[in-house]
Design a protein around this nucleic acid. Sequence first.
DNA 1: CGGTCCATTGATATTCGTCAACGGCAGTGG
DNA 2: CCACTGCCGTTGACGAATATCAATGGACCG
Lengths: 248, 248
Amino acid sequence: MVVMKLQPISPSLTVNGCTDCPIRARAVCADCNDTELVKLDKMKSYKSWKAGETLVHEGAPLEFAASIVSGCATLSRSLEDGRRQIVGLLLPSDFIGRPGRTRSEYAIEATTDVTLCLFRRGPFETLLRESPRVASRLLEMSLDELDATREWMLLLGRKTAREKVSTFLLALLRRTATGVGPYRTDLPLSREEIATFLGLTIETVSRQLTLLRKAGVIELDGLRTVICADLHLLAAESGDEVAEALLP
Amino acid sequence: MVVMKLQPISPSLTVNGCTDCPIRARAVCADCNDTELVKLDKMKSYKSWKAGETLVHEGAPLEFAASIVSGCATLSRSLEDGRRQIVGLLLPSDFIGRPGRTRSEYAIEATTDVTLCLFRRGPFETLLRESPRVASRLLEMSLDELDATREWMLLLGRKTAREKVSTFLLALLRRTATGVGPYRTDLPLSREEIATFLGLTIETVSRQLTLLRKAGVIELDGLRTVICADLHLLAAESGDEVAEALLP
DNA sequence: CGGTCCATTGATATTCGTCAACGGCAGTGG
DNA sequence: CCACTGCCGTTGACGAATATCAATGGACCG
């Protein structure tokens, strides 16, 4: 799982075998050989949630490990007075669960309809012990997540509201940057969720979107669709010139 | 490595064998058997830096893996205009390096005199592939670090300046909370570094320290020493009532 | 049609950053 | 020994960015 992932969100679909699984190449099982896949196949099951539903409450028992197959969910932590911060976005192929722990430190909530590939805890941890390929893939994914989380710390601690919103939109749009523009994406989060992710209020997010639109950096089609003709313009607003240099 | 670690900082000292190593129980080598220790012993060397020196520049090659033996260092990322955010504190037993990468995404800087136990890249990665105990220990440490980083996201995104400073002091003081108060600790960071860690300015940190002192929550002995008679008072200022419940 | 939810917009308040001055302390050199 | 200088931290005055409070608008749904 990654705070802000740069990969396509697959449409929801029914999956049975691992061979034609849409996240086969990027999930925790990416490096599995056939033997390991068979073992995984025996311990797995699929489950779906509707947008808005809570998968796991903050501090509640987490009796499975899982991969996101389709949809989008958030990881969040709260203070007692209700202030809340989204600390990670879970997108297809991201992993849920922590070896050796049976409690989730975070609330996990579906922001769109979500389907998970669930693994029973016991068998999964056994596999992790016995299959270095799975263990090393999980380490690699965790370190990617750590890098992404640290990048988000820089955003939360040092960027302005406008830069925060631009960075968020840019990250989403880059996932769909297939060649030339205009680029278009559907926001997987509501304004409130975006605010909770960026350490802002809903009003500030709304205002910054309006300002970016009036500045000609983006267009909005309805509430959820963002269009950007020139990602360089957006990158220039994101406070991160390195990001701009890496654009197509 | 952990954003805000809850363990004692060992005084700087000379170490030769692994047996009497001060971080033996908590470092990446914690679960090693004798065979693995011998291998580590052959690939390791010690190196020290003075307070203020840069170990690795942001984006620069990192040709080793390492454990912090003594002292304190920071991981930080910067924007092009100079804005900077510390994204992790490195304290004794914390790990430096990432398998498969030869570049550091972060600047690593000594804030006190620091001694590292360096491992040559090649041999260390081989060990990681061949010894599940080392790999699983590294995974565990990375996941701890990820949890700590996410907790810091909540701080950066949602806490007030007063809560940020209180949380920071509380985390430091808890490391030395041996029994009953008054608790006392030496800050391993300057005011500027604290500000860079908390997403604040130096002036705001200074003001909040003064306010906490005038409110009777803490005392200051010189610039670097903080004394707190009642950690519950400090916890009450930290915005996190759960933290208070866990105090001695 | 009315109600609810979500987003936008405006007016105002507050927090924190910025700019500037000052103070203490250590190191340096006369 | 003492003035000088530089670094770090503190304090004050002010301003800017963002939060808060409040009203309105549009989409969806019963």
